[in-house]
Simulated assay, not measured.
Amino acid sequence: MTRTALALALLATPAAADVNIYTTRQPELISPVLEAFTEETGIGVNLAFVEDGLPERLRAEGARSPADLVMVVDIANLAQIVETGAIQPVQSDVLEAAVPEALRDPEGLWFALTTRARVVYASRERVADGEVTTYEALADPEWQGRVCTRSGTHNYNLALLSGMIAHHGEEYARDWAAGLKDNLARRPQGNDRAQVRAIWAGECDISLGNTYYMGQMLADPEQQDWANAVRIIYPEFEEGGTHVNISGIAMTQAAPNREEALQLMEYLVSPEAQAIYAEVNNEFPVLEGAELSDLVASWGSFTPDDVSLAELADHRGAALRIMEEVDFDG
């Protein structure tokens, strides 16, 4: 081929399109892995941070949406996005091989990228080793006046209560929520880090929180004392495992750049991407054998609960109703 013919052939070859993402995650948390994707493939990524109202935005834009993918945290958020009708199923042998069945939608509407455990943060001074082993025990009278947590209607706590429903049924879950409320040291308030601060300040002895907040606190000089005042405990459901939630990804119905978007989805479950994503966010990879960060590995190991996240999403409405019936935040 002559030099002129080669130049004409290159001009005739369309360049790969950028992938457009709507996300509720802070851009700095996912930019490193997206930059690695661009470096490897030459495909650019346009990231739009949508702090609130993402389902409504997708509904309003419909088939005109420029978004190829959505990236969010929490199974409830993924379920709400699916309910808009704006998501299309994805069939991919790569994704199905990398993401465990319990961590993806049965119809391919969403896939987990990382997981986080809902743990107990326990005072190093006032809670002995082995004193907390199950979620069910958090409603026992021995913890009266010793528990702190954020709002019971927050998605993280609703997902945990959904797990309780999955294991024991709604009646048991209602009694458990009422018992946990009776054990609160103060009215639910603040975020997960605020609960650890309350333990450090002596207001309570244990709290519920997600694992990655430990990494965030240790990275903040003003919060390091809070983090060092507690240790992470991985409770389990009786005859179950430790409750986990996810960050996840889904492809929109509109997806103007479907081929490139699928390429990105598959890249995000590769060993390289899983290691980057998990380390930056202090989360656990979904890919078996992917490398943990040294910090996350130092928190110990646990057995994830085997209830599927799709089932937890189905129980969310009942969990919200229970929290309102027991007036958990009142």
Rank of each mutant, 00 (worst) to 15 (best):
D93L: 13
G330L: 10
P256W: 06
E136H: 10
R118F: 13
E28R: 14
A137M: 07
Y213N: 11
L184K: 04
L10E: 09
D68H: 06
N183I: 04
S308F: 08
A318N: 08
L262M: 11
E288Q: 13
L113N: 03
L287P: 09
A254N: 05
V99D: 11
F49E: 07
L320K: 10
T133Q: 15
E136W: 12
V269S: 03
A313R: 08
D306W: 06
A310R: 10
L292E: 10
L113K: 01
D225F: 07
D105K: 09
V132C: 07
Q216L: 14
H168C: 01
N46F: 06
A63G: 05
L320D: 12
E83D: 15
E101W: 02
S31T: 15
G330I: 06
G190K: 04
R104T: 04
I249N: 01
Y212F: 13
S92D: 09
D182N: 13
M71R: 00
D182R: 13
A139M: 03
P100Q: 10
Y212D: 08
R104V: 00
L180F: 11
G62S: 05
L218P: 01
R193L: 14
Q189S: 15
L268N: 01
V19K: 01
D175H: 06
M71C: 00
R321H: 13
A7V: 09
W110L: 04
R321C: 01
A194C: 03
G163A: 02
V72A: 05
T23S: 14
P66V: 03
N282A: 11
E238Q: 12
H168A: 05
A185G: 15
H315F: 15
W143Y: 10
V132K: 08
V296C: 06
H154L: 09
G152A: 07
A36Q: 13
D225A: 15
S247I: 01
H167N: 04
L138Q: 00
L287H: 09
E40V: 07
A254R: 06
L11I: 11
R57Q: 13
L268F: 05
E279H: 07
D74M: 06
I322W: 03
R116Q: 11
V132D: 11
G330C: 08
A275G: 10
Q144E: 09
T13G: 05
I233F: 03
E61I: 04
I199M: 09
L292K: 07
C204V: 02
A194Y: 12
F284G: 03
L309M: 15
E39Q: 14
R57P: 00
L158K: 08
Q253F: 02
A290D: 15
R231W: 02
G145K: 02
P89Q: 12
Y22L: 05
T133E: 15
T211V: 10
I21C: 07
V119D: 02
A79W: 10
A63L: 08
G330T: 12
E61S: 03
N257D: 06
F49D: 08
F237R: 05
A98Y: 11
A112M: 01
